[in-house]
Amino acid sequence: MENKRIKISGFGGQGIILSAHIVGQAASIYDGKNASMTQAYGPEARGGACSSQVVISDTEVDYPLVDTSDVLLALSQEGYDKFVGSLRDGGILCYDNDLVGVLQDHSRFDARAIPATRIAEELGKKIVANIVMLGFATRQAGFASYDAMKRTVLERVPPKFRDLNETAFERGYNYGEEVQT
């Protein structure tokens, strides 16, 4: 496998950093690969533009920053607008189509939509939208194994929200399954 460069973008409070942490931990601790996660954020705690990035590789990651991404997960219009241009040709875009409404030309890459926030709201907690998206992206983009991702999600969330997050991950993954087939 060559380097897989994943960019996750949205706004502060959506769990953008946690999402990258989950991807990196799943890949490096449970899938036995090398993963390097970095983040960018403004001074705001919530609401500001936020992005995180993970580079996954079979060998040591020399260059940990993501200038051009292979996979982009967009959870806000601003995050989409800012990073869609640096998604490589033939890359994979996963976006929340309720939050990202103004679309650019998608012919360069593979774009896949999921109403992640709406699904999360149906599950009772809007906050798990990032986990729905991670489930979806796990199926669509294959940067980490299903088992490693699910195990990490369950480890990283507070115990009393484990069931909710497990359901959120499954819903996203299955939605990905339906889109795929």
Binding site: H21, S36, M37, Q39, P64, L65
Partner: peptide
Amino acid sequence: AIVGHMTEK
């Protein structure tokens, strides 16, 4: 700040 805020194994 890159290494400090970077997460790896």
